[in-house]
Design a protein around this nucleic acid. Structure first.
Lengths: 165, 165
DNA sequence: TATTGTTATACTCTATAACTATA
DNA sequence: TATAGTTATAGAGTATAACAATA
């Protein structure tokens, strides 16, 4: 905390603010669309989409949690909601008796399919419209690099957990 | 809803996913830092920072609300918290008796100053580290264009509000 | 002893609608 | 009648800690 404040040049600040603002507005719009079209929150959509991509439409709770940012209990909560809605099913894993596998149901696939076109439409209209192909490629490359970097970094407070007495 | 699903090419999808993932992870880390360093949520920090930039450190509630995405009541709530913490003060406007002006207090400025270095450090470490200057400039340009576009677009459901009977 | 997942619980945030007061 | 802001209230989401069961 006694570090020197590293100076940020205007471009860096500009990139940061634009990133936060764009993602915030975009997420907000997408959330509305998801809610109207399928009664889904963004997290729920992400979970369904992730299952849709997974082989067999199933994944373990832990693997699902790793993809999204949330805590274990938060995931339990969200999967519980999705299960109540009949969009996923939970079953015990055969390999590991502790694990729970989450499977996308047919109803889940339908909701996903119902929601997708509108989702894409929002993206086109709000996010992609002002960009040419080169812009999109540059974004993908640059933000992809940042993502890789973030994933590689050790969590800041990995070590200093509570030592037992 | 019977629209043709507009096809998204892989680069577009990639850019979208990377944007969401990066901003989500970044915001999460920044939120932790803000909370530890100054007991601030991200919204509260944004409000303070906005006041810090405003001439005289003051702005009307409405103008504050326009900058951030939140509802009026949400803003009232957050400003209420900041006022309780002594970081801002509310006063009636002289020009318009209906309006309320929010002013950054000295304590508010101190918290802002206390929080800033760590904030920037997180940005450097997590977001800017893997990028060169050209990347940053490209990001600023491209995301800036998207932001301008988003701000210009009429809110999707501006018209079809409840007609009076 | 570590890991998987759930539960209980508390807290923060956001949104809607009803309301007051001023323009 | 429209605008600025507050209040009450309800709901969603998230996090922490304690817990049970399996590895």
């Amino acid at each position: 905390m006694t570090d020197e404040p590293p100076p940020l040049d205007p471009a860096e600040l500009g990139a940061y603010f634009a990133l936060i603002e764009v993602s915030s507005l975009l997420k907000h719009s997408v959330e509305q669309q998801l809610k109207e079209a399928g009664g889904l929150s963004y997290v729920q959509f992400q979970l369904l989409a992730r299952l849709g991509d997974a082989p067999g439409g199933r994944q373990r709770m832990t693997d699902l949690a790793d993809g999204v940012v949330y805590s274990r209990s938060g995931l339990t909560y969200q999967v519980g909601l999705l299960e109540q809605a009949g969009l996923v099913a939970r079953s015990a894993s055969i390999d590991d008796e502790r694990a729970v596998e989450v499977t996308l149901t047919d109803a889940g696939r339908e909701v996903l399919a119902a929601v997708f076109p509108g989702h894409i439409a929002v993206l086109q209209e709000l996010f992609l419209a002002p960009l040419d192909h080169g812009d999109v490629q540059a974004l993908e490359r640059i933000l992809g690099a940042v993502r890789t970097h973030m994933r590689a970094i050790p969590p800041r407070s990995a070590a200093p957990r509570r030592r037992r007495s």
